[in-house]
Simulated assay, not measured.
Amino acid sequence: MLKLHATRKLFEKLTLTSEGTLPATPMSKWLYEKPTIDINPLSGWHGHLVTLQRRNCVLMTHDSTRFPLVLPALTKPDFAELNDRFVDTFMNTLLKCGANEVHLETADKYLRPLQVDSDCSRSVQGTLNRMKDEFEHQLYYDRLNIADMTGYNAGAWLADTPRSVKGQKMVLWPKDAMLTLLERLADQNRFKEENPR
């Protein structure tokens, strides 16, 4: 599973099972059929529901890399299909950030259904609040209509913005941090394949 720490507004919008997962749908069934991973390095996301141009939008960020996702203009069926929307937005935002085939194949290897709780970190919530302000400014400055957006370009633009992380002296560049994580995971997988026990 991929842990998603949702703010109260987002958590209340989701219909979850007793395990904190979204019910499987025809579009997300394949995620539930993948084998479990004890420690998933892609796990650990925060999500926040915001209203922009009178539309529901979800902003997400990966805890350790601060890699951002923008899911704009969501309707009620989109919340039921949040697993599918997450996968689509994550993979396409990676593409917009210059990810190559190795990055994408590695990301796909670790994709699992979202498991949602409401345990949020104030540090990561601070990043989400900054993302909202920056995205709102972009919408206004570039006169963008949120209903016409996929969110991929906005996510890639936000990924190229440095983030400060509580307890770290250096700033984090989300795009570089996520691509580096995927490269490291690809190297680890290659090593395991070449050196089976």
Rank of each mutant, 00 (worst) to 15 (best):
K166W: 03
A147C: 13
K166F: 05
A156Q: 05
G20A: 05
Y140R: 15
W173K: 07
D78I: 07
L172C: 12
G151H: 11
T127E: 02
L10R: 01
L69K: 06
K9E: 15
N56D: 14
P35D: 12
N56F: 08
T25S: 15
N56K: 12
K13Q: 15
K109D: 04
L144D: 10
T106V: 09
D176F: 01
H5Q: 12
L52M: 15
T75G: 09
L94S: 10
R143D: 15
H62N: 05
Q138P: 00
D117A: 08
N56A: 12
T150C: 11
W45D: 08
Q115L: 06
H62P: 08
V124D: 09
R55C: 14
M91W: 04
T89I: 06
N189V: 10
A107K: 05
A6T: 08
C57H: 06
M1E: 06
K34G: 07
A6C: 12
D38G: 13
L114K: 04
F90P: 06
N195V: 03
L185T: 05
L95V: 14
S118H: 11
P113I: 06
W157E: 11
G167I: 00
C97E: 06
A177P: 01
M131S: 07
K76V: 14
G44T: 04
P196H: 12
G151Y: 12
A147N: 13
H5K: 07
E136K: 15
E136Y: 02
E134G: 00
D88Q: 14
W157M: 12
L94Y: 07
V116M: 03
T93I: 10
L179W: 01
R190S: 10
L94V: 10
V70M: 09
G98C: 04
S118I: 00
D187C: 05
L82N: 07
A147G: 08
L74F: 04
E19K: 11
G155A: 05
K29V: 08
L22F: 03
N40E: 02
N100G: 15
N129T: 01
M1T: 14
A177D: 09
L181D: 02
E19V: 02
L128W: 04
L181P: 01
E193F: 04
G98F: 04
E183T: 08
V87H: 05
K34M: 11
I37R: 03
L59A: 10
L71K: 10
A24C: 02
L128F: 05
L10P: 01
R122A: 04
T21D: 05
M131L: 14
T51S: 14
L31Y: 06
F90Y: 14
S28W: 03
H5T: 00
Y140F: 15
Q138C: 09
H48W: 07
S118P: 00
N40V: 03
L74Q: 06
F191P: 00
L69N: 05
T51D: 13
R184Y: 00
A99K: 06
L179C: 03
E81I: 01
P113L: 06
H103L: 04
D84A: 14
Y32P: 00
L82H: 07
F135H: 08
W45L: 08
S123N: 11
D108W: 10
P26C: 10
D133A: 14
L158S: 08
Q138D: 14
N153W: 13
S164R: 13
M1A: 11
F67K: 01
T150I: 04
